[in-house]
């Protein structure tokens, strides 16, 4: 392969890797927004907690890596259920301004709790994968990157199937599209809220636990993740699952290619520029809510 094509292929691979992670995180955010009408500014903190708990389990408790990942997600989900039950369940009828302020407060609380528990040091989760990179015709990756891509892609597919095909997934979408008629067929909205919040937190925590192998996690990581997730969700359409998936991949690829072929200082600007364009010409996002 010629050098130009190799480099392009490398950029595309980087973009898909990061894009899958963006998509996974944004799916959770869009679900919480769509079902509960909550703009969850604490979403990135679930990612951060997923990473930290996985680190704690592997590094400090000596748990097997592959056992630690699902356990870390389960622990974060348990926390999300407690938060939903004690805070958000009471705010069902509250205006969005109130819930938004509550989620901002929650994000500060969780970040500082992590700071107290684990300190400000960035941590990488030790993985059993060999660190030696793999080369395919000059395009480099590592077993860990491939694992991340496989897990995030699989979770996106699983999430999508759960939402499209299962009874609970259909009930969620119905709640999403019209809460009143969902309640009238007997869907318990309280329970759907709890599922949506737990499911959203699970996806973010899974992303944090998996990516924590090569992107060090620290208490402040959550803020950046939340920002990226909102970019994706606005890009893809608030409350659209397909939009979150396509938007996540698009942002990942746009950042990779943009940074690859434009001055790298512009990398972050690309996502925001895309959002401004979308808001100007398609304020409902690329996809409607589904």
């Amino acid at each position: 392969m010629s050098a130009t094509i190799t480099i392009l292929a490398q950029h595309l691979l980087n973009g898909v890797l990061i894009g899958c992670a963006y998509a996974l995180i944004a799916m959770g955010l869009t679900m919480i927004f769509g079902v509960m009408n909550i703009a969850n500014f604490a979403h990135g903190e679930f990612y951060m907690l997923g990473g930290f708990v996985a680190f704690y389990l592997v590094s400090l408790m000596g748990l097997d890596y592959f056992a630690a990942l699902p356990l870390a997600v389960a622990i974060v989900v348990a926390l999300a259920i407690v938060l939903q039950h004690s805070i958000f369940r009471r705010l069902r009828e509250a205006p969005m301004m109130t819930t938004t302020l509550v989620t901002i407060g929650l994000s500060i609380l969780l970040e500082n709790a992590a700071l107290l528990l684990w300190g400000p040091q960035p941590q990488s989760i030790p993985t059993p994968f060999p660190t030696k990179p793999l080369s395919f015709f000059g395009v480099y990756t590592t077993p860990l990157y491939l694992f991340c891509m496989a897990v995030t892609a699989a979770l996106i597919v699983v999430g999508h199937v759960l939402i499209r095909r299962t009874r609970m997934g259909k009930a969620m979408r119905a709640t999403f599209q019209n809460k009143e008629s969902a309640a009238l067929v007997g869907i318990r909205i309280d329970r759907i809220y709890a599922y949506a919040f737990a499911f959203g937190a699970a996806l973010a925590a899974a992303a944090g636990a998996v990516l924590g192998g090569f992107i060090p996690v620290e208490p402040a990581t959550g803020g950046i993740i939340t920002l990226k997730a909102f970019v994706v969700v606005i890009l893809g359409g608030m409350g659209s699952f397909v939009g979150a998936i396509v938007g996540g991949l698009l942002l990942g690829l746009a950042e990779a290619l943009g940074a690859g072929y434009m001055p790298t200082g512009w990398k972050d600007a690309i996502g925001f520029f895309a959002v401004i364009l979308v808001l100007l010409f398609r304020p409902e996002g690329l996809f409607k809510r589904v």
Binding site: Q10, N14, L17, I18, I215, T221, I224, G260, K267, D268
Partner: peptide
């Protein structure tokens, strides 16, 4: 260049 907020640098490194 990379930003203070960047968590991964794959694009810059590839470049």
């Amino acid at each position: 260049f990379f930003q203070q907020s960047d968590l991964q640098f794959l694009s810059q490194i590839t470049k």
